[in-house]
């Protein structure tokens, strides 16, 4: 509309942006499609599930913190390769990563999620929600699985997933941004590129609005993760302090 403050961007520019962001995504996505196809779709056996369940709560938390941190390191690399991200001031780079890196991990989770068996690739095999019982966060785990399942049902291409991840990361409404306008411009361009690619892929009109709904679902998942971490830390402060990855502690204020 006329009130739309979106920057004027040529189709060639949009195509270029799609290319850059897709390339960044593929270079930093942790598992390539080919690797995923070759990965055995083996689920954990009952005795293995029980072995995860019988781990002490703190050991399971530590294991998940390590896995999340590994995935986040790839997201940081993705961010660095997004056109314009490294031109933002350092404060804003940090703000965007602190708020958005786990959200992108949840978005990327649909690549390693099997809807049929409701399981996710974790620690070498496919794990259902019961594997994570020892964390003591059944409601959060079940919401994360539901989110992954609903992302899978959109059947996004890698291009679409790359642009949606960049869109999430470049959220201009995060608190404490110093150059909000700069971030807004980048996010608007990314949204135009996402619309462009959805149109080109002849996706139905509803996909973009479905993706917009996912943004609020992601925020809710992340704030619930923070709540669960605070509750865990209140009981096991020393475990968090001495055994959790330093990057995880920096990101989630542990």
């Amino acid at each position: 509309s006329n009130r739309d403050p979106s920057p004027t961007v040529s189709l060639a520019e949009l195509d270029h942006l799609v290319q850059i962001i897709s390339k960044s995504h593929l270079e930093t996505c942790q598992y390539l499609r080919e690797e995923l196809q070759q990965m055995s779709r083996q689920n954990f056996q009952q005795d293995e599930v029980e072995s995860y369940q019988s781990k002490p709560r703190e050991a399971m938390w530590q294991l998940c913190a390590v896995k999340i941190t590994e995935a986040i390191q790839y997201v940081v690399e993705f961010a660095k390769r997004i056109d314009g991200f490294m031109d933002l001031c350092q404060n804003d780079q940090i703000v965007l990563l602190k708020a958005g890196s786990l959200e992108v991990v949840f978005v990327r989770m649909c690549r390693v999620f099997d809807s049929q068996s409701n399981s996710v690739y974790f620690d070498g095999k496919f794990a259902g929600p019961d594997v994570f019982k020892g964390l003591g966060c059944d409601d959060l785990i079940s919401s994360v699985f539901d989110f992954a399942k609903s992302m899978c049902s959109l059947h996004l291409t890698e291009d679409e997933l790359a642009l949606f991840s960049a869109f999430v990361l470049l959220s201009a409404d995060r608190s404490w941004l110093q150059e909000k306008l700069q971030v807004e411009k980048l996010q608007q361009k990314t949204q135009l590129a996402l619309q462009h690619v959805l149109q080109k892929n002849q996706r139905e009109h509803g996909v973009l609005s479905k993706l917009r709904c996912k943004v609020s679902a992601l925020r809710s998942l992340c704030s619930r993760h923070t709540e669960k971490l605070s509750a865990f830390r209140a009981v096991y402060p020393d475990i968090v302090q001495t055994h959790f990855p330093p990057l995880y502690k920096e990101l989630f204020g542990a």
């Binding site: 930093t28 990057l247 990101l251």
Partner: peptide, 20 residues
């Protein structure tokens, strides 16, 4: 800066995912 030492390092490093 001290509070986000590792993030700063990661942002400044020219690492590739292979090195991660």
């Amino acid at each position: 800066k001290e509070k986000h030492k590792i993030l700063h390092q990661l942002l400044q490093n020219s690492t590739s995912p292979v090195d991660l």
